[in-house]
């Protein structure tokens, strides 16, 4: 929607709106920031009134005059009513959610009606509409607004629109909220190449993994690049084979997820791999650390740790969106960005 707005409004109108509606997570709707215009239905209604007036004039019919004036006055009354539906309402961004790129990120908003009932509201973000049925005067309701995300990083809809057309749909009153808080969008998980090879190695790997996810070490032949600590030297002494133990879920051995492990691949792609790895590790309850350029997260386990790692991946190299002039976040138009396509993977998460 906001992109539509961008193309629809000339720049100066946009600037004017932005000046009128400063960024805030709490917005009380007043005359200052409420807009009201007739809908297309309202415009046609106006034309109808004009035709009715012409009929009244030509047939010199007082009653047609009367009904025309009555409907015209109802139109103005509806303007008042539509405006009152929204005025005094307080819109609060309670929580900007988190999610993986390509998914809908939930923004939780609270709508608290003022002195008047707020009837038939619609919240809309980027191309999504959420009807909020009815908030009686003095009460509040929570609404979840899904905002589609495309890229990892901070996601902040430029404008969240709240609109009402009640009572007759002839007029619409609306305002935008320009939130300060932004959601964090994790990189879309992409199956890491190392892991793929591990799966290729043997069918039994999956079954050999115990449900508890510890103790069982995975044994495989030595490859170039394996750390010498992990070679099972005792076994080597017995059989002369270099066997490496893959400590899948051994709490005792910290496993580092390293940004630099995927040499030669695109940064965003690496983040995708790491995201997948973080999910894999946390699923099996493994202990792992994350090594990003400029940021190191010490090994730990548990969901909180996983989230922390994902956040770090999400915002790596990203500036927290600050103010009005900034470009829209969450919709960077970088040409070289690898667009995640593994929809099936994301769906399982």
């Amino acid at each position: 929607m906001s992109r539509l707005i961008r193309s629809r409004f000339p720049n100066w109108i946009n600037n004017w709106i932005n000046r009128r509606i400063p960024r805030a997570d709490v917005q009380v709707l007043t005359q200052r920031n409420l807009f009201i215009l007739p809908t297309a239905a309202g415009v046609v209604f106006g034309l109808l009134l004009l035709i009715m007036l012409l009929t009244g004039i030509n047939y010199q019919n007082s009653l047609i005059y009367l009904v025309t004036f009555l409907l015209g006055a109802v139109f103005v009354g509806a303007m008042h009513q539509t405006h009152r539906n929204l005025s005094g309402l307080e819109l609060t961004l309670v929580q900007a959610g988190e999610g993986f790129a390509g998914d809908d990120v939930i923004f939780r908003l609270r709508v608290a009606a003022g002195k008047d009932d707020a009837i038939a509201l619609t919240l809309s973000g980027d191309e999504r509409e959420v009807p909020v049925a009815h908030v009686p005067a003095g009460q509040s309701a929570d609404v979840s607004l899904p905002v589609p995300s495309v890229f990892r990083g901070y996601l902040r809809p430029d404008r969240i629109r709240i609109e009402t057309r009640f009572p007759f749909g002839l007029l619409k009153a609306w305002t935008w909220m320009r939130p300060v808080a932004s959601a964090v969008v994790f990189p879309r998980p992409i199956v890491a190449p190392e892991a793929i090879s591990a799966v290729d190695d043997g069918e039994q790997t999956a079954s050999s993994r115990s449900p508890e996810g510890n103790d069982h070490a995975e044994l495989r032949p030595w490859r170039d690049g394996d750390m010498s600590q992990r070679v099972m030297w005792k076994r080597f002494a017995r059989s002369g084979q270099m066997v490496v133990a893959d400590w899948e879920a051994d709490k005792g051995s910290p496993h580092w997820l390293d940004f630099n492990a995927f040499a030669g691949t695109d940064h965003e792609l690496r983040l995708g791999y790491l995201s997948w790895l973080v999910l894999e590790r946390s699923k099996s309850g493994a202990r792992f650390g994350l090594n990003l350029p400029g940021q190191v997260i010490d090994p730990d386990s548990g969901p909180a740790h996983a989230t922390r790692c994902l956040r770090a991946l999400a915002v790596w190299g990203e500036e927290k969106p600050r103010d009005t002039s900034a470009a829209q976040h969450g919709s960077r138009k970088r040409a070289d960005i690898h667009k995640p396509e593994e929809a099936t993977l994301g769906a399982q998460l």
Binding site: I57, N58, Y59, Y65, F69, A73, V76, G77
Partner: peptide
Amino acid sequence: MLLKVLPVVVLLFVFFPRMEPLWSV
């Protein structure tokens, strides 16, 4: 709403200039 707008309707009804028909019908 009707009660609120009634005075305006009455005033308009009384004062709106009754023009000659624009064309014969």
